[in-house]
């Protein structure tokens, strides 16, 4: 069965002669979280607005296939947590949320019931009849999240969902996002915290200057990148490690060393060649974190452009 929920083909968008989005294509499937990453001003928000039908692309096409229907766009079946948060601040939490669910085509009674259930999930029931502006920032954030999900969208776009939340609520949100994915939603997640992305996403799309930098599963990206990071605790002298096969850089701090194995270097060969004079207490060989890959990819792009 084809589980593709969203297909974006070669979309282009200009603003006053500046190209904000320059021919990006991607797909998202049901039951998948796709990380949509990029530095500030890369064209992320514009792309998201095109995907959600807020903007019309100058070129290209967005098609959404949900519930057996294929169409240009079914706004009722999408949910959106915008980066710029905003709710009717002088309305009550319940009224505002019910209204937004109604705009997604739910009946009032049904909308009310679902919203109350979500408010319960986020411990917000006592606040249901308070005005939105009376809530703390973290609470408003949760309310905003409910506005995105109360109608159980098939395509959910979350732009910086974790900003402004304490670690406890970040975890709660992560659980909820995973549940929505397991229930079959296709989720587009944009976040600057790469560790969160790594935890949640199956695949990522990196955009820079309106273009695709890379697009694939985390494993693919990491193996494409081809490097390894070695961390070890030791006794003795670690200076000689720099000369071992594949080592590109070495940093020693006290009894800890971290080093980078270059593209194509074999972790196996490295471990076998460790000098006998060195007593290893702890050792880990990993792919570099997404954070590093992201930063290096953007730096490389900037360098090539310059």
């Amino acid at each position: 069965m084809d589980r593709t929920a969203l297909r974006v083909q070669e979309i282009v968008k200009d603003f006053d002669g500046l190209r904000a989005v320059d021919g990006i294509s991607l797909e998202a499937s049901r039951g998948e979280i796709l990380g949509f990453l990029g530095p500030n001003g890369a064209g992320k928000t514009t792309s998201i607005r095109i995907i959600l039908g807020i903007f019309e692309p100058d070129e290209g096409e967005v098609s959404i296939r949900l519930g057996g229907l294929t169409g240009r766009l079914l706004k009722e079946r999408t949910g959106y947590l915008p980066e710029e948060r905003g709710l009717y601040s002088d309305a009550t939490v319940l009224d505002a949320l019910v209204y937004f669910a109604e705009l997604k085509g739910l009946r009032r009674a049904d909308a009310r019931q679902r919203v109350l259930r979500w408010l319960g999930r986020f411990d917000l029931v006592p606040w249901a009849h308070k005005k939105v502006e009376k809530l703390s920032k973290g609470m408003q954030q949760k309310v905003q999240f409910i506005a995105a999900v109360a109608h159980e969208p098939d395509l959910l776009v979350l732009d910086e969902p974790f900003s402004g939340l304490d670690p406890l609520h970040q975890d709660l949100l992560k659980d909820v996002i995973r549940e929505l994915r397991d229930a079959g939603a296709a989720i587009l997640l944009s976040a600057h915290q790469m560790n969160q992305v790594e935890e949640l996403c199956d695949r990522v799309f990196l955009i820079h200057r309106g273009r695709q930098v890379f697009y694939g599963t985390l494993d693919e990206i990491k193996s494409q990148n081809g490097e390894h990071v070695v961390r070890l605790r030791f006794e003795g002298s670690a200076e000689s490690l720099a000369a071992l096969p594949g080592v590109e850089s070495l940093a020693i701090r006290g009894d800890r060393a971290s080093l980078r194995l270059g593209r194509g270097a074999s972790p196996d060969a490295f471990v076998r060649s460790l000098p006998a004079a060195l007593t290893v207490r702890e050792l880990s060989v990993t792919r570099p974190p997404l954070h590093d890959i992201f930063v290096r990819a953007i730096e490389k792009e900037n360098h090539e452009a310059a």
Binding site: K75, T78, G86, Y88
Partner: peptide, 14 residues
């Protein structure tokens, strides 16, 4: 509504 940044959410629905 524009200042309160509600517009974007509204326009993602209608």
């Amino acid at each position: 509504e524009k200042q309160g940044r509600v517009v974007e959410l509204v326009l993602s629905s209608i």
